[in-house]
Design a protein around this nucleic acid. Structure first.
Lengths: 391, 391
DNA sequence: GCACTGCACG
DNA sequence: CGTGCAGTGC
């Protein structure tokens, strides 16, 4: 039985607005740790991962893992019936094919109940490769949205170049070329709000639950992250373990083609290859890593990139952006990275701006880009394989 | 070499929004006086003329005349990448086939550079007949836009009747007829802000550079109008010289079919006939008038209509609307005029409302309507031949 | 290939 | 609420 009480329906509404264009149906996987959703987009090029932590709810109870197969269009409609500040309670029986949503006005004088049919969705939930990234850029989410929207007018893809200079977005189109350079704000380097100098790690990614160790300084560290990061706080915030394990889900992991860490299939950059749980062979690849959670770093297969001293990534905070009021651009990198991506997807990702004032881009050469928006209760992350060649 | 720095990208953005639906490609003709664009619409029924004065730029330099052949769709896209208040710099080498646009945030923390391919456009730039108009109506641009949009729902064309009574827009549609009468505001007559009674002329048209004589009382008189109008200030503001010469452009003038002044080809009301510069014969027609600028009145070919004592038209002001805060409808006329126009085009013209709070309609029987929006740095004008008969 | 309708964004 | 863009149908 699931019962999850959310203080503001707005969060769910925004999440669905962000995801519904990318995916039509998906499982909301509920377990005692919270609710996660993972899905590939319809053309299997991008991957979305949403996490809502149990302790972010006003009340949360989930006796045993339940996958709620939802048509996102339907859920969006139902959520439109909620006011932004309604208290929203989700309920489902263990065996249910129905999800109940209750909207309760804060002033108690209105209660609305909706019931939505659930569906059986083939869980092509996936194991997300645990990757270390060579570059992490944190910037205002609105700015990111604006840039990719702008460049999408000119061409199909954007080359993102991260260097000491800053981050540059370049698009070559038929009729026009464009390039936008954002320099790292000077203050970004010294803004050691969380202790170590520029290492504030300032990411919205609060690292997946099993890999990070809660960082006390972090506001959201309290949110119950139980994963440990590789380096001490000194290093650049490189995500040590981006591989999201298929927690509680056994055997359903899918291999991301570009997740270079486990298998060096960098050539697959063009598209993720989700393996259904039924595809035992593929699943195995990831499964071995699945169960270990406590000790961080597991699964860091691409050690070469982690050469730099990883600082104690103070990730762990879903609300990196929430707590970090720094307005500018922060870049943390071990080496320069240049990658090319489809703008169509980035534009889509950038719809999540409503969820966070900041966005974090994590990149390594030949590895899928991670675009991460963190908020108090969790995060939404997108993975997008780079284009190969430089088309 | 051209380098033009505009303090607000918004101006260019609005200009392109206004023009791009009418014309797909056009030359931006740059010379030391500024930048002009003249083009017929795709079906050669309407004509647009845009002027941006050199002194309206924060910085302007143009060593020698350069025509920049631009695809307006592409330029629109590139301009969408600018924020309204970005400082926008246009650059082009003399021989260039590339236009560079740089957007600089006012706060300096972002610099975006775009390069757009230019094209060779057959300069069917045209000489715009210098017409005296029998009636001039200045009204809020939003009101004009609303009226033509409304009437376009009912029918294809509108009959515009200007009389002492006011200005009336009449549309007869299949299912319904409509007519809207705007009376001249009483105050318009006495609002002798500039000296003579209602003659404030309040037009957005600041008359092309060489034809007007600056009128001291006019706020925008300073804008450098050097033409004199026929009558003394007492008369109605009739535009004495609407013929836009092809400044700096030699031989490229085209004759507007309906420009009745030179040749009395009123029968051509249906469509403009642009003559390429190659068409030497046509060009000559207008060229003779081209060079005289200082002494007003030149080129007043249709004296018959100027029978009334034309008041000193205080045109010359590009920012007629800018300086004229008068909110109502002002009519200045020598004789009643009734003309019928295609609403489709008027609706299109009215997209320029973003550029000016006021619009000026200039009409004479059987002559193309001039719809003029003035702003601080210049103007945008549209010419539309009347429908013949009363269909 | 063009036009119309629906969806999404500002 | 209005405008623009994309997808579908004719």
């Amino acid at each position: 039985m699931l019962e999850a009480k959310l203080n503001e329906a707005a969060l769910l509404k925004r999440l669905l607005d962000a995801v519904k264009e990318l995916v039509t149906d998906a499982n909301f996987d509920c377990n005692e740790e919270g609710i996660t959703l993972q899905a590939m987009d319809n053309s299997h090029v991008a991957l979305v991962a949403v996490k809502l932590k149990a302790d972010g709810f006003q009340k949360y109870r989930c006796d045993r893992p339940i996958p709620l197969g939802v048509n996102l269009g339907s859920l969006t409609k139902v959520l439109k019936c909620a006011k932004d500040d309604d208290i929203c309670t989700l309920k489902a029986a263990d065996d249910a094919d129905i999800l109940s949503l209750t909207y309760q006005a804060k002033n108690q004088d209105r209660i609305a109940e909706y019931e939505m049919k659930l569906m059986d969705i083939d869980a092509d939930t996936l194991g997300i490769p645990d990757t270390e990234y060579d570059a992490s850029v944190t910037m205002p989410s609105g700015e990111f949205a604006r840039i990719v929207r702008d460049l999408s007018l000119l061409g199909e893809s954007v080359r993102i170049e991260v260097s000491k200079e800053g981050i540059r977005f370049v698009s070559d189109g038929e009729a026009a070329n464009g390039n936008i350079l954002l320099k790292q704000n000077a203050e970004a380097a010294k803004k050691g709000k969380k202790g170590s100098s520029s290492k504030r790690k300032g990411s919205d990614d609060e690292d997946d639950e099993d890999e990070e160790k809660p960082d006390p300084e972090d506001e959201e560290g309290a949110a119950g992250s139980d994963e440990e990061v590789s380096g001490g706080e000194g290093g650049k915030k490189k995500v040590k373990k981006e591989k999201v394990k298929k927690e509680e889900k056994d055997g359903e992991d899918v291999e991301m083609a570009n997740g270079a860490d486990e298998a060096d299939e960098d050539e697959d950059a063009g598209e993720f290859k989700p393996s259904k749980k039924e595809a035992g062979s593929d699943a195995e690849e990831e499964d071995d890593d699945e169960e270990e959670g406590g000790s961080g770093k597991k699964r860091k297969k691409a050690p070469g990139k982690s050469g730099k001293p990883a600082k104690k990534a103070k990730k762990g905070e879903a609300d990196a952006d929430a707590d970090d009021d720094f307005e500018g651009v922060r870049i943390e990198m071990n080496q320069a990275v240049t990658l090319t991506f489809s703008l169509k997807y980035l534009v889509n990702f950038s719809k999540s701006s409503a969820l966070s004032k900041k966005v974090q881009l994590m990149m390594s050469n030949d590895v899928p880009l991670l675009v991460s928006y963190g908020f108090n209760q969790g995060h939404i992350r997108y993975y997008l394989a780079p284009k190969i060649g430089d088309d």
